[in-house]
Design a binder for these strands. Structure first.
Lengths: 159, 159
DNA sequence: CGGTGTAGTTCGCCGTACGAATTATCCGTT
DNA sequence: AACGGATAATTCGTACGGCGAACTACACCG
């Protein structure tokens, strides 16, 4: 009756529970730098390039009104800046400040390390397979690029 | 220069971005039933059995003080109940109410469906491989059982 | 029986997230 | 050029989420 051992794990529980782990790792990395996970995510998105509020809203899946506050708070912390768009007076471009770029890089690297460590128990080939399969899921569902690719040969055991 | 096509995706971005997808699916399934994602997660945990506040705190990775409020709100909605522990007067067992069990099941099924759909582009063998690899990640890191296994042969295309 | 630890709650604070309403601008039509 | 419908953001009010510190009440060990 009482089964304490975990049998084979289905794909859905596996996704949910690994999501739980990644969320935790992400939150820890943020926390350690005085960031909230949301602010960390915002910084990671902006590492690619500046975006408008509407674009961020779409990428992050948040109401625009939610974004106003998030950017407000992050701006108050000196990490991002609202730049006015030359082509559209209404619009705004949210960009990293110098300090924000530094902190973003630190956060990004730490989050990478922590998340990479989650898969530390897998061999190189297994990691590659996992990346490929999850990559398919990501592209199939057009997941926004909320986390950029690491620079060349940084990731991990890249032989 | 401008590369719009996504090349091979590294394991870390793949994990982060699939996490993003799962979070979204989970939130959508909750939202549709007037639940917050946190309340949905609480219900899913309690589908296994009642737990004490301390246990829930550990499983969900939340401060105990955070849990008090979450259970308060969920209790106010009539979905869970605080039962007193016979062996320890201080302690409390949080259990699903009848209505909570029904809603939990609905939410659970819907979340399963949505998350399963994320991997709809993979073939049966690929799904199995993905489940096995993520399962390793989950067990290696001792991820708490925040989402139970589906009942026999419910998951999906199970031949 | 007294002291130490544990289970939960309370409190104050701030961040997160939403929808509805608002402001300002853009742009296609006429 | 003027109108009117989209669009970009913000504001406002509300509710939830999450934490640490301080607290209450009980358990357990000696």
């Amino acid at each position: 009756m009482a089964k304490h051992v975990e049998g084979p794990i289905g794909i859905v529980p596996a996704l949910v529970r690994s999501t739980f782990l990644v969320n935790g790792a992400y939150a820890d990395a943020a926390r350690e730098r005085g960031l909230t996970p949301q602010q960390g995510q915002l910084l990671c998105v902006l590492m690619q390039q500046p975006f408008g509020m509407g674009e961020l809203s779409a990428m992050l899946g948040l109401a625009k009104s939610s974004l106003t506050g998030l950017v407000d708070r992050t701006e108050r912390n000196g990490l991002v800046r609202r730049e006015s768009d030359a082509r559209d007076t209404r619009a705004v471009r949210v960009a990293l400040t110098d300090g924000g770029a530094v902190l973003a890089e630190e956060f990004y690297m730490d989050a990478c390390r922590r998340i990479d460590d989650l898969a530390a128990g897998l061999g190189a080939a297994e990691r590659e397979t996992l990346a490929a399969l999850l990559g398919r899921v990501v592209t199939d569902n057009e997941a926004p690029v909320v986390f950029r690719e690491p620079a060349e040969g940084v990731a991990a055991s890249e032989g």
